[in-house]
Design a protein around this nucleic acid. Sequence first.
DNA 1: CCGATCATGTAACGGGTTACATGATTTC
DNA 2: GAAATCATGTAACCCGTTACATGATCGG
Lengths: 180, 180
Amino acid sequence: MSLKSIILGCLLDAPSHGYEIRQRLKDFFKRSHGINEGQLYATLKKMEQDGLVTKEIVHQEKNPPRKVFFLTEKGKEQFNSWLMEKDGTDFSGFDFFGAFPFLEKSTFFKHLPPSRVLEFVESQVKLEQLKLEEFKRVRGRMLERGVNHYRVRVIDFGIDLQQAKIQWLYTLSRDLEAPE
Amino acid sequence: MSLKSIILGCLLDAPSHGYEIRQRLKDFFKRSHGINEGQLYATLKKMEQDGLVTKEIVHQEKNPPRKVFFLTEKGKEQFNSWLMEKDGTDFSGFDFFGAFPFLEKSTFFKHLPPSRVLEFVESQVKLEQLKLEEFKRVRGRMLERGVNHYRVRVIDFGIDLQQAKIQWLYTLSRDLEAPE
DNA sequence: CCGATCATGTAACGGGTTACATGATTTC
DNA sequence: GAAATCATGTAACCCGTTACATGATCGG
């Protein structure tokens, strides 16, 4: 699941064609800078074959014809079963590494002299702070556009996480400055 | 990078053979439940070809011979350049979805009646709380074993994140209970 | 005329997952 | 005698990324 689920959800919001799906996802789930074409069209093709969506070709005067996709019953079912699936059922691992790639690095900080770690941590803090401000600006724009409440909550989480990262980086640098 | 970097770091901690690397990574970076064999051996082979590691075969009486890997100078360089690389330089996306898969779902909650959302959020809270307790236990065990300070900090981040998740889920459920 | 936007795609590659295969030794 | 541990691996598959290709129209 994943790109597929997101496309399913997106088509439940409203039927649309590849190019438009890309735009809509770019606005919100901007993993990298919008989903890449390659996989989008490939996934849509696969989903059609699997009977999750149907296609309707809409001709236009000026632009190339659009291929508009609609969810089928099967598609809706699959979306719902994804939606109700529980996450994080697997207790056997540290899933939080993905939340902050910097953690993987800090696992090996013992191989660096403290002064270099401090330097590195401080430059990372600056980056994370810029990002925090960017997220706050995005939140502001979302409110202006009257985005759905749940989606505002999503970026709220992003902001919380960002603050937690900065907080944690400060703790690290305090550890390093303090004579142990 | 990623599995490769982790293996490099692991071999910098101490040279070792495939099976042992797996054990060591299982102890700490337990993504899923220890790295899967398939990719481990494949990656090691590739790394040897690329001149990042060298191999030494150690015969044993009872068990199959071990292939012990050592970092080369090139391997150390590559590890260092990974270590000093900055993370999160890309500002164009919402990287925090990966931190909490539940977020992807909540993006589509508008398609569910509030009562079902509430139900779902509450069951997720319980899960996250169990996980939080598990992380705290793991932290305790790490202290007992005298694990490197930076690595304790890593699980501290995991605990912070876990608390942030629970906090956020509570906010969501309060939103739902409150008459808007 | 250049570059952006609309709209579709293909091809090659890389990394990870699942599942299976082998074979000896140790433990219950 | 079954199951776990030690230790190696292969093969098929899925998903994602990068980069490229096409071709029309519109704005400066």
